[in-house]
Amino acid sequence: MKKLILVLFVCIAMIGCVLAAVPSVNLTVTTTATTAPQLIGGSMGTYLVQANVNGANVSFDSDYKGVITNGTLAVSVYSTGTPYRTISVQAPGYALYTANITQVPGNQETIDIPVTLIPATQPTVPASEATTAAASPAPTTSGSLPFAVFGAFVIVGIFAIRSRR
């Protein structure tokens, strides 16, 4: 009886692992984030990011701040708060721009941060050497593994209760 329970448990665990590795549906998730400034008090200053690419995403110390629109993005900061150290600006088709932030705006002061994004270059390959790249596999989901393990424990519990009777 114990061997049967062990074999059943192993089979269910293996089935759960297989189901977790095989995607059931190729899903694409699109999210939109809207951030609002949190009012905690203190003197405010502004970084004015000026970039040559509209639609570029701007982050300070990996903290997303917004999108360049009409060549600029104004980022309000507390002048008495912890200062940001780096700025990152990225846009599709352009190389990532990263620089150190060396100034902190004072109360109602604006500091300009000029950014020039450079188009990303792709290596040129002669037509005689060109190859077709294989498509990357679709991302997998692992949502079924916890259910398989839970099911295995339920079955083991049922067998354990029956074997004590």
Rank of each mutant, 00 (worst) to 15 (best):
M1L: 14
K2R: 14
L4Q: 02
L4R: 07
L4C: 03
C17I: 14
V18F: 13
A21V: 13
S24R: 09
S24C: 11
T30Y: 12
T30R: 11
T32C: 10
A33L: 15
A33S: 07
A33K: 11
T34F: 10
A36K: 15
P37Y: 02
P37I: 05
Q38P: 13
Q38F: 12
I40E: 10
S43N: 05
S43L: 04
Q50N: 08
A51G: 02
V53H: 02
N54K: 14
G55D: 03
N57H: 10
D61L: 15
S62V: 13
S62Y: 12
K65C: 11
G66N: 00
V67P: 03
T69Y: 01
T69V: 05
N70L: 15
N70K: 14
L73D: 00
A74Y: 05
V75G: 02
S76L: 14
Y78S: 07
Y78N: 10
S79K: 11
T80Q: 03
T82D: 02
P83L: 11
Y84I: 12
R85Q: 10
T86G: 06
I87T: 04
V89C: 08
A91K: 00
P92D: 06
A99F: 04
N100D: 13
I101Y: 05
I101P: 01
I101N: 02
I101V: 15
T102E: 08
P105T: 12
Q108F: 05
E109R: 10
T110D: 04
D112E: 06
T116C: 08
L117V: 04
L117H: 00
I118E: 09
P119W: 00
T124H: 04
T124P: 07
T131Q: 12
A135R: 14
T140W: 09
T141K: 11
S142D: 10
G143P: 12
G143L: 14
S144E: 07
L145N: 07
P146F: 05
P146H: 01
A148I: 09
V149N: 05
V149K: 01
F150P: 05
F150A: 09
I155P: 02
V156E: 00
I158C: 03
I158G: 00
I161T: 08
R162A: 13
R162Q: 12
